[in-house]
């Protein structure tokens, strides 16, 4: 098994920056954000005859296993269910990774600078 985990966080639209800044504070390098549509809350679907789509942001962060718990804790603190972000975060096991070595090399400070 690989030394990485994929942390996924589903938050209300506009709260992805909060998630990313929390993850970076916990040691994550970067992530990818894409949009989605929530289906959980049925009460808010219609508002004065107009259907309101609960827009969601999904933040996907590949993190080393040792900092996974810290990332989840920080993300939950910043945009968890007790905040306006109403986010849920979970991690998936990663079997293998390609391209992360190059990313790590690029992130390392170069000698002489």
């Amino acid at each position: 098994m690989n030394n990485f985990e994929c942390v996924l966080c589903v938050v209300n639209h506009g709260y992805s920056d909060l998630v990313m800044s929390a993850a970076k504070r916990a040691g994550a390098t970067g992530g990818t954000i894409f949009s989605g549509r929530g289906t959980g809350n049925h009460d808010n679907e219609e508002f004065f005859g107009v259907t309101v789509t609960p827009e969601k942001d999904i933040v996907m962060i590949l993190v080393p296993k040792p900092i996974r718990d810290k990332v989840l804790e920080y993300v939950n603190e910043a945009a968890g269910m007790s905040t306006k972000g109403l986010g849920i975060a979970f991690s998936l096991p990663v079997a293998d990774v390609v391209g992360i070595g190059e990313l790590r090399d690029a992130a390392a400070p170069k000698e002489g600078k």
């Binding site: 998936l92 990663v94 079997a95 990774v97 390609v98 391209g99 190059e102």
Partner: peptide, 27 residues
């Protein structure tokens, strides 16, 4: 099929800066 895909992918990622990326697999 993953090892072959991984090899092709790492070759592609090394072509140029524009082609860079990351990939991971989950069972």
């Amino acid at each position: 099929r993953w090892p072959a895909y991984k090899m092709k992918l790492s070759q592609r990622f090394n072509v140029s800066k524009v082609a860079k990326g990351i990939a991971f697999s989950t069972p």
